[in-house]
Structure formats: structure tokens, C-alpha cells
Amino acid sequence: MKFALLINTGPYQHQAADTAYQFARAALAEGHTIRRIFFYQDGVYNASRLSVPPQDDRHIVRRWSALAAEHRIELLLCSASALRRGILDKEGARVNAIDTDNLAPGFRLAGLAQLIDAGIEADRLLSFAD
């Protein structure tokens, strides 16, 4: 079965990003496919490569990047949600004359239409939120 995931809360503050990750791992282990994970609202904070958790804690951002690389999953962020919260790709940094981008590997800015598209394409769209 093809799943698409929607994550609407930031990492650490709320468990939803952890639940989504554990669900994704279990689904992939059971032989299901995840094509796309969409990050909306505060969910875009899952993509900041500037996140530095303590050494004995899980690294939520890197965990997403590794999962995406391993299973060729698209990690897409709503660009409007991301830009207003200070999550920038190279283009966003350049256009707005900001000195750095901060998107972690595997993540890409996209439009909300691509969330709708993911919902249409997948057998199940699952959301994880506050």
C-alpha cells in the first residue's frame, strides 16, 4: 500500500513527529511504500539543519534525512509555512538577501498543491498533529 504522511507540529515540543517517524519505520518494514512526507504549519521546523539536540537525545532532523535517503522518500515543506518561520532553501535566502539557508538534506520547499497531490496519489494520507 502507498502511504503519504502529513506532519503539522514541530519536533521535540510535541510527540507527533516521533509517532510519525515510528509509524513510517513500521510501515516500510512491513513492505509498504511511502512516497512523500509533507510538513505543514510548525511541522516545517523538522527541516532545520541548524537543530542541535543534546548528544544523548535523538536527532529528529537527521533521522528524517536518513529515512528519506534510504527509502527515496520526498520530504516536502509548505513554502509559505516555512518562509514565515525562518526555514529557507538557497533560493529563499538569496531572494531575501539572508546570509544562510537552513534546509537539511533531503528536504525541499513546495506548494500546498503538492500535499493535495500526495493525498490523491496515495492509498492513505495520514496526519500527525497537535
Binding site: 504549519q41 500546498l112 493535495i116 497531490d117 490523491i120
Partner: peptide, 19 residues
């Protein structure tokens, strides 16, 4: 909270996408 606003954005996008 921003929930209402971002939900509205998604609603309008879904409609524009002819769903």
C-alpha cells in the same frame, strides 16, 4: 493560534486544485 489561517490556505488550495 495560526491553525485557522493555515487550514483556510489549505482549503482554498484544495478547491483551486479542483477537488
Amino acid at each position: 493560534t495560526l491553525h485557522a489561517w493555515e487550514s483556510l490556505d489549505l482549503t482554498l488550495t484544495a478547491a483551486a486544485f479542483e477537488q
